[in-house]
Design a protein around this nucleic acid. Structure first.
Length: 103
DNA sequence: GTAATGACCAGGC
DNA sequence: AGCCTGGCCATTA
């Protein structure tokens, strides 16, 4: 069973990402006080119930790419939600120079 | 107890 | 740019 306290901190950190901004798995782990736990962030998002208020679509990997295979349902939904916020996918990547959130 | 897995990451080539 | 490798660490088998 996952550690509920760690999950809570991770989810709160993700919830703090502003509209129109992005953050990476490793950065979220760091901000949540759990450095080197990027994979735990991914595992936490994977267990999210459908309809959660957590903005999982604002979380991408350190290369500026989606973690989902291109063309998958999750990939398309992520792209749609981000572009609705003004975050544009160009060349298969999101421009972290523009959209990365740094508190 | 060991071995494999994974919405990851950094470095090397 | 892409691909591979080793590291990472909670979770699972």
């Amino acid at each position: 069973m996952p550690n509920p306290e760690h999950q809570t901190r991770i989810l709160q950190t993700i919830a703090a990402i502003p509209h129109g901004k992005l953050c990476t798995y490793g950065k979220i782990a760091e901000l949540a006080g759990l450095p080197r736990h990027a994979r735990l962030v991914g595992a936490t998002l994977k267990n999210l119930p459908a309809g959660s208020k957590i903005p999982w679509h604002r979380v991408i990997n350190s290369q500026g790419r989606s973690s989902f295979p291109e063309g998958s349902d999750a990939f398309n939904k992520q792209q749609q939600r981000l572009e609705a916020e003004g975050v544009i996918l160009s060349g298969g990547k999101y421009n972290l120079r523009h959209y990365l959130w740094t508190p």
